[in-house]
Amino acid sequence: MQKHHYLAAATLLGLAVAIGGCARDPQKRSVSELAVSGTKSMLRADADMQTVLNKLAGLDGKAIEKTAPPEARQQPTLADAVKGVLTDDKRSTDPQTLVPGVTTREVTIPGAAGNLPATVYTPAGSGPHPVVLYFHGGGWVIADRTVYDAGARGLAKQADAVVVSVDYRRAPEYKFPAAHDDALAAYKWLTTHAQSLQGDPQRLALAGESAGGNLAVATAIAARDAGLPAPRHILAVYPVAQADTHTASYEKYADAMPLNRPMMLWFVDQISRTPADVQDPRISLVKANLRGLAPVTLINAEIDPLRDDGAQLQQALVQAGVSVERKVYEGVTHEFFGAAAVVEKAQQAQAYAGQRLKADLTAR
Rank of each mutant, 00 (worst) to 15 (best):
L357G: 02
P239C: 14
D182E: 06
A57W: 05
A18H: 06
L215Y: 02
Y253D: 00
D309V: 02
S37H: 03
V286R: 06
Q242W: 12
R29T: 09
A35W: 02
K287C: 04
T67R: 11
V164G: 03
A363P: 10
L78N: 00
A183Q: 00
I142N: 05
Q270P: 03
L265G: 01
G101P: 11
D308L: 00
N54W: 12
V240F: 03
A311R: 06
G125K: 08
L228C: 14
M1G: 15
P128F: 13
Q75P: 02
P295Q: 08
D94M: 12
R169G: 09
I303L: 08
V324A: 05
R307S: 03
A211I: 04
V237A: 11
T97F: 07
G338H: 05
V318D: 14
R232M: 01
H233A: 11
A301P: 15
V131N: 07
V278Q: 01
G208L: 06
A113Q: 11
R232Q: 05
P258Y: 05
A301D: 06
R356M: 14
R145H: 03
P123M: 15
D308T: 11
L86R: 10
K90T: 02
V268K: 01
K287V: 04
R224L: 06
E344K: 15
A10G: 09
I221Y: 04
H4N: 10
Q355S: 12
K66T: 07
A359G: 13
A207L: 04
A112N: 10
A222S: 15
L86C: 05
A8K: 08
A320S: 15
A68Y: 15
A276E: 12
V322D: 05
Q348T: 07
M1H: 14
R232V: 03
A351I: 11
W266H: 04
E335R: 14
T297W: 00
V52G: 02
D167H: 03
E209K: 02
P123Y: 04
I109P: 02
V82K: 01
V141L: 14
R326I: 08
Q198C: 10
H233K: 10
A236K: 03
I234N: 01
L15A: 04
K62S: 12
D88W: 10
V162Q: 11
P201W: 03
A159W: 07
N289P: 05
H193C: 05
I64L: 15
H246D: 09
Q50S: 10
P231T: 07
T191R: 07
T333V: 15
E325Q: 15
R203D: 13
A341F: 04
D182Y: 05
T219M: 13
L259F: 13
R169S: 06
D60T: 08
P305Y: 01
A222Q: 14
V296A: 01
T122Q: 14
A220I: 01
Q242F: 13
R73M: 07
A152P: 00
A118R: 00
P275I: 09
L293W: 07
L204E: 02
A349W: 03
D160M: 13
L317P: 02
L361A: 05
L133E: 01
